[in-house]
Design a protein around this nucleic acid. Structure first.
Lengths: 162, 162
DNA sequence: CCCTTAGTTCGGAGGTTTCCGAACTAACCT
DNA sequence: AGGTTAGTTCGGAAACCTCCGAACTAAGGG
């Protein structure tokens, strides 16, 4: 199959997938384009043309993608254009985001666990326990173990790419 | 501190957190309420009153939460009310969703890898390689390892809760 | 048979997201 | 100075999401 057609299809498919991580449709297409174009970079203009989008739209989304550490650009001497690429640390940044989210989740579930324990203690007199703490404990173990797996991979990844 | 006040605060805090998984604000508050109320269940009316929401809104969101296997209800003989609780399999369901998402992601990255390899092969003649496959490979390993961690926990979880 | 209880369905109001074009800036080129 | 290139900023249009009340169904009680 023609490589260009293949690329277009992959951009669309990858774009749809990326939308699931709270990216606007066009932001997702930008990410997909950059992923499928590699280290040679894609210029602002190429993005506008290829995605058939407004300059302002592309500008805004590129801004956001840079702020969230998903995208970077480089320039060439004597060339005013920006060449956009996916952030070389994207894998690392994604992992850090995941770990952070799970850390917050853990804190919250610990708070909830404590609340439920207090409730149960107060209910001891009347004899009617309202909560088993299983759900919270299961979730906490789940978060703990997956976090560990990610951390382990992260340090392996860091030492390999040093 | 008063347990009721604590509960209200936790519902809000947990609600905000749950919104991040693409839940509408009110759907998130419903989930939070059910999590913080335990196995005794919460009726439709209590949800409407406590959350100060419209009946139709609560009805729609409960529907959606049941379809996505987050919520269940039970009834009591001679009582027409439904008592809503979080789905006892929620932890399992969440894990399955994660695994599924990652499985799709893996397939996509494999497709992309193949496309990039074809591009490189075609570029061999001209001598300019466009892609290193590192990014794809890193991501694939990442997905592989975290998936394994979740699967491992899942089977442990299943055998424990049998 | 009518009333109450426990919800569901439907049409839309209000808010938010997503995108756009027009006007603008900033830098370099002639 | 004027023109071209490479974007940015701003105001608003269109689409979508979230929630609501009013009217409805369905089941049981008197």
């Amino acid at each position: 199959m023609d490589l260009d057609v293949q690329k277009k299809n992959l951009i669309e498919e990858l774009g749809v997938h990326l939308e699931k991580d709270n990216l606007a449709p066009l932001a997702a297409r930008i990410m997909a384009t950059l992923i499928l174009s590699g280290k040679k970079g894609v210029t602002f203009d190429e993005l506008v043309c290829n995605l058939q989008a407004g300059k302002s739209t592309v500008s805004t989304h590129l801004d956001h993608l840079q702020n969230t550490k998903r995208v970077k650009y480089f320039t060439k001497p004597g060339d005013r254009k920006r060449y956009f690429i996916i952030d070389p640390n994207l894998v690392l940044n994604v992992m850090d985001e995941l770990l952070n989210k799970w850390e917050n989740e853990k804190k919250l579930h610990l708070k909830i666990r404590e609340y439920k324990q207090q409730c149960n203690k107060r209910a001891e007199e009347t004899g009617e326990f309202q909560f088993d703490l299983e759900f919270q404990d299961d979730f906490l173990t789940f978060l703990e173990e997956t976090s560990n797996a990610v951390r382990k991979f992260k340090s392996k990844y860091i030492s390999r790419n040093k």
